[in-house]
């Protein structure tokens, strides 16, 4: 595995092993559409990494390239120590994929599906059987294992996909929109499995999502991707503080005095804006700045009417870096159809 020599802006990630290293990866389709435009990033061993972006941003295309389903037009990547271009077969042996669509064979049972994929990964029958039992337990499908997949609900199918993707005990598991169209309950379950995989088994997870709460609650590092480019990448904390940190709203009884420059002098305050009857203050760490501001204001003889603290959400981060809210963009019709089919089946 490659050692990351310098991990600029990645907090305490310097010491971790890089398991996926992507350099200038680009995909231009036959119709000249540049789906992925020279993306460069690293994923560290044992982390949950995600691509956050709207439909058609290039998330799935990136995953398809990294799992050898699409040939990159330009650029290189090393996945689990193997060169994507020169050793695609080795990459396939070491990663697992949970695609966006429900791909399990409907005419077979859940168990048969898992056993088929175990066989495709060259796993001998007796070991495969043991792993299948284990995976079915993990995703809580033991009872349904003998039923045809066509009788499964959307949530069950998603869980089966997860089990199929884990059958070769991959070092890296790619999940393309793992909770697309799922109800809250199943979504929470999928998040739980993902956390188990990371915490108990030290697996590296690379997922794409267009749900902000998913990226925020589940992932350590997030790459915001839009129009095929990574517009910002960092830990969720870094991303949030990069938009100026927490916001503090402060109301002062003395309305006729302008305290803007006075508040600005308080430690760690980065900006102060006076709006009508209150001040909008930004500071990296609101819970430290707020008491300091109150103390300073009080000791100068003014009276605090009200104070509130809001933590930035990824929503704001997203808006800041892409210039638009996370929206459903027009993707090509086939993608939309596939996605609609998934959502429809998820709800069936």
């Amino acid at each position: 595995m490659l050692k990351m020599e310098e991990a600029a802006g990645n907090g305490n990630y310097e010491s971790r092993n890089v398991i996926i290293e992507v350099k200038g990866l680009t995909k231009i389709f036959e119709n000249k559409l540049k789906a992925v435009d020279s993306v460069t990033f690293s994923v560290y061993e044992g982390e949950i990494f995600s691509f956050l972006g709207p439909n058609g941003a290039g998330k799935s295309t990136t995953i398809k390239m990294l799992t050898t389903l699409l040939r990159p037009s330009e650029g290189d990547a090393v996945v689990c120590g193997f060169d994507l271009r020169k050793q695609p077969q080795e990459v396939r042996w070491s990663v697992g994929v949970v695609p966006q669509e429900y791909t399990a064979d409907e005419d077979m049972t859940g168990l048969e599906n898992i056993m088929l994929f175990a066989n495709l990964y060259g796993i001998p029958g007796d070991v495969a059987r043991k792993r299948a039992d284990e995976l079915l337990t993990l995703v809580e499908l033991n009872e349904a294992a003998g039923r045809k997949v066509s009788t499964y609900s959307g949530g069950m199918r998603r869980r089966l996909e997860l089990a199929c993707g884990l059958v070769n005990h991959p070092k890296v598991l790619f999940l393309d929109e793992p909770t697309l169209g799922l109800d809250v309950q199943t979504r929470t379950a999928v998040w739980r499995y993902i956390r188990i995989l990371k915490e108990q088994y030290g697996m590296t997870l690379f997922l794409t999502t267009h749900y902000l709460e998913e990226a925020d609650g589940l992932c350590e590092r997030v790459g915001i991707i839009d129009h095929g480019r990574i517009v910002r990448l960092g830990t969720t904390g870094e991303l949030k503080s990069s938009v100026g940190g927490d916001a503090i709203e402060l109301g002062i009884r003395e309305k006729d005095v302008d305290l803007t420059s006075f508040i600005m002098k308080v430690d760690s305050v980065t900006s102060v804006v006076r709006e009508n009857d209150h001040y909008r203050i930004k500071a990296p760490l609101g819970e430290e700045a707020a008491p300091a501001i109150m103390d300073a204001v009080r000791s100068a003889g003014y009276h605090v009417d009200r104070i509130s603290l809001t933590k930035p959400t990824l929503d704001e981060v997203y808006l800041e870096y892409t210039g638009h809210k996370l929206r459903d963009e027009e993707a090509n019709s086939q993608q939309v159809m596939a996605q609609q089919r998934t959502v429809r089946r998820a709800r069936a």
């Binding site: 050898t68 396939r92 669509e101 399990a104 990964y121 070769n168």
Partner: peptide, 10 residues
């Protein structure tokens, strides 16, 4: 999508 899934295996 079953074919893609197959193609992602070795």
């Amino acid at each position: 999508g079953f074919l893609d899934k197959l193609l992602s295996t070795p």
